[in-house]
Design a binder for these strands. Structure first.
Lengths: 347, 347
DNA sequence: CTGAAAGCGCTAACAT
DNA sequence: ATGTTAGCGCTTTCAG
């Protein structure tokens, strides 16, 4: 009473396994009558294709390997969601591997995916990774590789990232349009590209609106709640203190919010605040935090879409690796609103 | 220049594929000298095992199929994390499938996993699922099936769940020990088992401490922020209003907190509040929300552990399906603390 | 439009 | 301890 194979179906119908295989795969040279009969018999015998056998022969597995630091981080959970959604819609499955930000785990993950003959790999590089030989091997084996969020130009593969510069520009512009006069920025370590980009966006938005860029209003934190708190206290103690703060990400903004709330002279809504990332908590704190959404699920979908496009292309035709830069979305909540909103939002 | 196979290695070493296979699989009847030589050659030729071929022959894939409603929900992201961690440590990979709470998707997911010959399936049943024929097929094919969070007794398979009763009991007990006198409960729809269990835990804790169970203090909401808010307003308008609230889950608690904050006569810390789930935001709102942690990552790990135990057992020996009931963990934050804490926490 | 035959890369029974 | 042989279930030439 072992599992039904195409031979069982062939025997039942007095035909051959080849015909059954073709019928089930909707091969054009099979009459629709036969196809129908075969499908019926397959259903009756409760047949399930054996993917291992199929892919051993055909070389295709219909599996996409996904490498992320951790599914527990909501950002990556959301990206997986987007990848799996697109994959499933095209008949692909997702094989998941977590690196815990470790190079060793990442290299091992790549090995596992290679052994599994995945048709493509979508990955976000671990923080600790500084060598890329494992990714190079993927490229050498001509397996489509797509990176997201943390892309490495040196690898020269397609990638999906968000436009941090633009997001920061939008956030700052929003505060300007709200009428704030002295807009501060709490940044992060400048060797991390995304933080540097956000600082650039902030500076350029100020310039575009003829605001003075005041070095005193730019502080460099460590990207944490505590750091946001400390930096904000320093900012609020300046002789000419800011009336709004753009924080480099939501946890920093949360610390800033706590510090603002504890300031004796502060009245609610007096100091504008914007974060970055649209973390789940940002909607639930009081006041609701205005922030920049990173379109995480879309990021996964786009990465999967790149794979879908890549997979039938001639390898020789792949000239320039595609790079998709997603538009961030400003999510306006209470924390950045002044009492009177004189102008409606422009696009 | 195609991929290296064990035949290539065999040719290189003037031996046979069988020996190479055995050496690489650490077979006992191969001398350690040969093993060493084979391993070296494999490395030199950059050999990677072809899992499709291996599993076609051996019947084992070293893949665990995981079915969840959505990786975007942090609860499930966390469970996946736990599953993948254990799986990887035992040489298994995780094939992921999302159902979006739909029966059709779930059934299709099972088909995909069966075609992929996964060695086992770990699943959390979709909300819309009311028929279990697809899971029944998994059982019929003798593939280990483990459920988590949403278990179905009728399926008679091993499961990992959390003890909702106990969690609610602990939450209520905590409020009692803090000295609150009138402890209300905002529950949810009673046809959903977990909410019913939490209500039971609340009632039993009150009884255990000789508190009167007052029907006025038990309200039934719809498990949302808004519902938590509405229910709380009603509670606070009672002639004999509560001095503490145990909410059925964190979003309800969040609504309750908002309502409490807006009550004119309220002073901070006057009304105790406890939630359930330890959502990410619960740590970041003000005041921090005391809540009950559901040990999500552990849930995934335990489910994976059950699979690991099951996989080598004789199918005939599987008498009673294992059911693991995890202990919830009370996470105490500001929202439930009264000014004076007279007694230290007892175990 | 269908059948015959070969083989993907590996492992396992049997032989030596 | 190693070699020989067969075959897992499927797809894919090549023939007809």
């Amino acid at each position: 009473m072992s599992r039904t194979t195409i031979h069982d179906i062939a025997k039942e119908l007095n035909t051959t396994a080849a015909t059954v295989s073709r019928a089930l795969n909707n091969h054009p040279s099979i009459s629709s009558a036969t196809k129908e009969v075969v499908r019926k018999a397959a259903q009756k015998l409760n047949y399930r294709q054996n993917r291992a056998a199929s892919s051993l022969r055909s070389g295709k597995t219909y599996v996409i390997g996904v490498i992320i630091p951790s599914a527990e981080i909501s950002f990556f959970g959301s990206v997986i969601h987007g990848i799996e959604k697109v994959a499933k819609s095209q008949g692909y499955s997702v094989l998941l591997f977590q690196t815990n930000e470790s190079y060793e785990d990442e290299a091992q993950g790549i090995q596992t995916l290679l052994q599994s003959n995945v048709d493509g790999i979508i990955a976000s590089i671990a923080k600790e990774t500084t060598r890329y030989d494992h990714f190079q091997e993927v490229k050498n084996r001509k397996i489509p590789l797509i990176l997201f969020d943390r892309a490495i130009d040196e690898l020269d593969v397609p990638a999906v990232v968000i436009d941090d510069y633009k997001g920061a520009y939008m956030a700052t512009e929003h505060l300007i349009r709200q009428g704030y006069q002295r807009i501060a920025h709490i940044s992060g370590p400048q060797h991390i590209q995304i933080f540097h980009e956000r600082l650039r966006g902030y500076v350029d938005a100020l310039k575009a609106y003829n605001y003075k860029v005041d070095g005193d209003l730019i502080t460099y934190g460590k990207v944490s709640i505590d750091s946001g708190r400390t930096c904000t206290e320093a900012l609020l103690n300046l002789p000419k203190r800011p009336d709004a703060i753009f924080a480099v990400e939501d946890f920093t903004a949360l610390g800033a919010l706590q510090a603002i709330k504890e300031t004796p002279w502060n009245k609610p809504g007096q100091i504008g605040l914007v974060g970055f990332a649209n973390e789940a908590f940002s909607a639930y704190i009081t006041p609701g935090l205005t922030t920049v959404d990173q379109q995480t699920a879309l990021m996964g979908q786009e990465a999967a879409n790149i794979f879908m496009n890549l997979r039938q292309e001639e390898p020789t035709l792949v000239d320039l690796p595609q790079k998709i830069i997603l538009d961030p979305v400003l999510v306006v909540r209470q924390s950045s609103l002044r009492k009177k909103i004189s102008r409606r939002r422009e696009e």
